[in-house]
Design a protein around this nucleic acid. Sequence first.
DNA 1: TTGAAAGCGCTACCAA
DNA 2: TTGGTAGCGCTTTCAA
Lengths: 370, 370
Amino acid sequence: MVGQNHHSNSLNGNGNRVTLKFLAKQLDLSPTTISVVISDSPLAATIAEKTKKRIWEAVRKFNYRPNVFARYLHGKRTYCVAVLVPDIGDEFSSSLISGIEKRLAQQGYFYFVVSHRGAPELIEKSPDTLLDRGVEGMIFINTPLGRVLPVPVVAVSDITEAPDVSSIVIDNARAARLALKHLRALGHRKIAFFRGPDGNGDTEDRWESVKSAAAELRVQIDPKLTRGLGKYPECNDTTMADLGYHAAKELLKASRDFTALVAFNDGSAIGAIRAFRDAGLKVPKDISVIGFDDIDQAAFNVPRLTTIRQPLTRMGELAASTLIKRIEHPEEKSAEILVEPMLVVRESTCALAASQTAARNSRLRKTTKR
Amino acid sequence: MVGQNHHSNSLNGNGNRVTLKFLAKQLDLSPTTISVVISDSPLAATIAEKTKKRIWEAVRKFNYRPNVFARYLHGKRTYCVAVLVPDIGDEFSSSLISGIEKRLAQQGYFYFVVSHRGAPELIEKSPDTLLDRGVEGMIFINTPLGRVLPVPVVAVSDITEAPDVSSIVIDNARAARLALKHLRALGHRKIAFFRGPDGNGDTEDRWESVKSAAAELRVQIDPKLTRGLGKYPECNDTTMADLGYHAAKELLKASRDFTALVAFNDGSAIGAIRAFRDAGLKVPKDISVIGFDDIDQAAFNVPRLTTIRQPLTRMGELAASTLIKRIEHPEEKSAEILVEPMLVVRESTCALAASQTAARNSRLRKTTKR
DNA sequence: TTGAAAGCGCTACCAA
DNA sequence: TTGGTAGCGCTTTCAA
């Protein structure tokens, strides 16, 4: 029958489960004494060294492992948290989770991950199931949280600002300014934009930031030159590169009167570059492209991607340590943690030199005819 | 105090935990009756419809949620498994996990993931900790399993063939033949090779397969033209692209007398392409490059990557469903499951035309002088 | 058709 | 310095 041997305890030679009671009998001590020693409770100090040694020896000998569930029953800590994410597979999430996992492991925590692919029903129900399973806290990555949870919550790139949620967010205002200033300094004025997918936690903030930065630097945002990247949850069925690829194609169909693109992230930037090349356009010569995130592949792309770096792994670590801090010190207040972006100049952007303009225009004309 | 409110049950209006006992009192029934109904045990059939209805209503009204840990204590199923992987962040693992998670979620399973970054001690200890936490099975991705576990195990791209482990592996013999045949058909004879990192579960098998395929198709494997990609766990500190990048640079330093590269996977192929371009070489004109896997970014790379596809997401799904099958039907035997690879021709390989050879040679000479 | 009682393995309290 | 006892919340006989 299924479920028969799901008890974790080892068996001793006689096929008996090795429990506290069993150990107690072997050692001729009471279960209490052993429990105290093994769980290293304050009382352990009062137990004779010799007894302790005997106990530990028996533990090793019989390979005793305390039953975790029996412990949980007493409301003890589970050292278990959960990570909710739209899709575990994309570059953004996986870098983040990589950082989360690293810190969590260091501190001896386990974690469940549920990737909901944007399904509202999963997003709604998962927290309860996770709570049932004893998680002591949750990290929401790009996932809307509809209600107050009885455990600490840290949000990364989140949508809704539920009260009492610590959130880790990139300073989008600064990020946008960095991107636009760079392009502006290179002489670009006709700039196209990708707006993120509706429902993505960074989309609104980033877009507003881009708009302010544009206003500040006096670059026009032409609706003809801006494209959205779909919306959740549908956009989850594909990759960011694919979204960027198609958005770029549409862009080209509508207009070729731009010299640079500010993508929503590196994935969409890479897709866009692919589309531009397919249209016979050179990046950066004809069109400069800048992304956000600095995912691993950005540095190996052809051309190497200029981007606004978000330290994703570090953000993951930060999310995890913030969560742990809140779990272990519930009295401390939560706060928003701003992460500083950084401009990484590589090869996908270049100056719009006057000399290049003629060649570029001819190429544009040529390709337009196709 | 920490750990006070980690019980999952909801509270009722008076701050009491909603337990079976509580419900029983409300309904003036015994806990037994309620338990039987709620856990839908065979006995439930003998309970009056009306009683059942009353019970379910109360469950809803008080938002009763059975305490999972109390249940586990009785050796009931946990519907929880574990996934062990070197690094959750790379393209290979994350696609795989994406598939695993999808199938698992469909079947109502939760999972822990532990990414051990190749640390032998973690690999050694994790299974026990996971067992303690009640996992009913484990999936090992590219992770050596040193011993027999008391729960079903499925290995993907595994190293050691422990007995009674179901493994999902790509048909490397076929994959290698596909790759070499393709190159051979394009006229390539001087071919360079990347051998995978030592310790990677596919390295040996793939390499042996490459050697046989080479022998079969009469292409020489020149030691000067083959490069390893480091070894575990060190190679885990970086990306496959980076590994490929450096291997390609070394390769060029040693010899330029090759017209094609069979990389170990797409990541290393992409890195190699980057290195070739940096050396002024064109892909595929000067050097054709073929990868393995067909990761998401392969299709957006410049040039689009020709590769031997492993259906990673499907392999993940397969791993999960195999594991579940073995959990739920322990009597069935485990077996190795071979997955068929497929050649995907894109832009990174091309024919070694006689006409190109002259131009190519001159380019090679030029770049060699640098 | 329902209920009482005995645990699952552990911890906590109080007594010795 | 140690042990007895009473649960944690649930399931599972067995009895009513």
